[in-house]
Amino acid sequence: MLNIVISGVGGQGTLLAARAIAEAAICKGFEVRTSETIGMAQREGSVVSHVRLGHNLNGALIPDHKADILLGFELAETVRAIGKLKPGGVIISNTHRIMPVSVSLGSAGYRSDKMISSLAQATDRLILLDATQAASKAGGYKSANVVLLGVLSGLPELPFHPADLWQAIMQHVSPRTRQINQAAFELGQRIIAENRNTVSG
């Protein structure tokens, strides 16, 4: 069984990411379960998706310390989900920061340096990238989720080929943004290729 936790902020496209991974796995004959945050928390709040691939699956929620992969769409939100990661698991995290209102109001701090060292402490198999900036280069910052999926697609853990994942993503993006998303996905693939040694496990 493969357990993937995807964390981020409402509106960043975690739902699409979970769905695409699940659909790619179904095409390869796997059972899947995903669990989503839908409703009030979607409005600017923290959101988490759980994705499980394998055989004879039960529930969709991944227990603590059981995630093989933590895919974080926003720096603080990656750290928030860190308790889900298993020892030796992989973290792929966007370093882009989305400031919660509590920080702008001065009632909370945002310590990026400490957050990054928390991630480094959790695992050696850590990939940090500014996926939002990379997506802007590809043509639209909103495709950061697809950049991150591109990175994910190169992990040795995944039971399908990057092309399978791209096929699944394509079903969910509008033809208008297809080119941008393809460029975003390829950028992600390039980043994981450069980090092959880090994640080889």
């Binding site: 979607q42 709040g45 310590r111």
Partner: peptide, 14 residues
């Protein structure tokens, strides 16, 4: 695990 302090991210108006 000793994890960095995290800012509250409550749901809010868009």
């Amino acid at each position: 695990m000793d994890v960095a302090p995290l800012p509250l991210r409550a749901p809010g108006l868009c």
